[in-house]
């Protein structure tokens, strides 16, 4: 058929235009497109502790917006002082992660937002309780109706606006990003750290735009670590032996701000974290110079405060 030939020719052309190989690391964009009203409402809800069972825990309780989108506690504290088991990951740049949570059980931000809301250890809200609360507040009710039209607001709308808010939580213009864009030179220490980052193999897992957050990897690939069944690794989801101690690689952006480190917060400092990763995952011991260089490099990954938080 002549038409079929034409179409085939067309997609062959497209194929010829296939994108060339990308660099292992990429700078963040200045901004992602997001819905202004939704993001603003999402911000309001993000900081609202009434969305928890005891009325004291908001999203922001564990994802501090002035501390790299995470918290300084080893593991999070939920409603009624319930202790969590995982260290809170940063909400900044989370939109660039290929999955959400340490074990990647949420496909996107919207799905992720439900997790803490329903989790017994975190906010512990039922869907009914959430909807009852949202619709009882005239401000929320009006704001949701302004966005979605008539009708009561539901959990879907709630997670939608929170996800939209998180799209606005990106931290561009880190020194390293500016270096990648050719705007500045790195310092000698940073440069040395960057080279080490690549040569010792950090970059095999921490790559892409988020410098991580795009694959599952083992903690203890070379020197295995003890497996804790209560930790949220992939094994918790799949039960496969293969998935024990297999986690989503966290992003290293703003890593200097988000101590403590690792899924259970076991590393209190960057140095500790680097030592752990070097020994268990890369099978060597960092010497102090190397560690200092890497810390310098990791510090260059700290970006600007998201604009939505600084705007009046």
């Amino acid at each position: 058929m002549r038409l079929a030939q034409k179409v085939r020719w067309l997609w062959v052309c497209c194929g010829l235009c296939a994108v060339a190989a990308a660099a292992p690391l990429a700078p963040l964009p200045q901004q992602l497109d997001y819905h202004q009203a939704k993001a603003q409402l999402g911000l309001r809800l993000f900081v609202d502790p009434k969305l928890s069972a005891d009325g004291r825990v908001a999203c922001v309780s564990c994802h501090l917006l002035d501390a790299g989108g995470a918290e300084s506690k080893t593991v999070s504290t939920g409603v009624f002082q319930r202790q969590g088991r995982m260290n809170a990951p940063s909400v900044f740049n989370a939109a660039f992660n290929f999955r959400q949570f340490w074990n990647g059980r949420a496909l996107d931000l919207q799905e992720q937002a439900l997790g803490p809301l329903h989790s017994r250890l975190e906010m512990d809200m039922t869907e009914d309780a959430i909807e009852a609360y949202l619709n009882a507040q005239p401000y929320y009710r009006q704001a949701f109706e302004a966005i979605y039209g008539q009708g009561p607001a539901g959990v879907d709308q709630l997670t939608d606006v929170i996800a939209e808010f998180q799209k606005a939580l990106i931290t561009p213009n880190a020194r390293f990003d500016r270096f990648l864009r050719g705007e500045i030179e790195l310092s000698a220490a940073e440069q040395a750290g960057y080279l080490l980052f690549k040569s010792v193999g950090c970059v095999t897992c921490h790559n892409g735009i988020n410098i991580g957050g795009n694959s599952y990897q083992y903690l203890g690939a070379v020197h295995p670590v003890e497996h804790h069944p209560e930790h949220g690794d992939l094994y918790q989801r799949t039960g496969r032996e293969f998935d024990k101690n297999r986690f989503k690689v966290p992003s290293l952006r703003n890593v200097a701000l988000t101590a403590p480190y690792l899924h259970d917060g076991r590393a209190a400092t960057l140095g500790e974290a680097l030592d752990t990763m070097a020994y268990h995952n890369l099978g060597f011991r960092l010497d102090p110079d190397q560690q200092a260089s890497l810390v310098a490099f990791l510090n260059a990954l700290t970006g600007e405060t998201p604009r939505i938080l600084t705007e009046p």
Binding site: L10, W11, A21, T204
Partner: peptide, 30 residues
Amino acid sequence: LNTLGEMQRLEGALDRQLMQAAFQLYHEYD
């Protein structure tokens, strides 16, 4: 047909990414 062709092209690109990832010492997974 266009869409089917585009899917084939994307899958070809995916396979190339895999090869690249396997071949290069480090490569982004995005």
